[in-house]
Amino acid sequence: MSQQKKPGWKELAIGDILPAGTAEKFETGDWRSERPTWHPERCIHCLFCWVNCPDTSIIVENGKMTGIDMKHCKGCGICAKECPVKPDKAITMGPER
């Protein structure tokens, strides 16, 4: 990102305006010190992880969880904490490698 030449004032859109959702291009995955691991075989697709994720990083397709967006996940661990599956959770946290 930082290698790209930034636009000058003539190239920027008029006013402090941005098209929606450009932060998708900004990767916060490298903020992680802990890493979530999803265990699909245990997942009951309750989506508690999805609705409690501050980083919109639980990927859901057709009402089912399909994975974690590691480009944006900051590794907070809320998903693992809120996972209701017992005795072993469907998302577990471990050290980021």
């Binding site: 930034k6 920027l12 402090d16 305006i17 941005l18 098209p19 929606a20 959702g21």
Partner: peptide, 12 residues
């Protein structure tokens, strides 16, 4: 949809 009034830092 657009965002108007975002925060600019030293670079913008």
């Amino acid at each position: 949809p657009t965002t108007l009034g975002s925060i600019d830092l030293q670079d913008y």
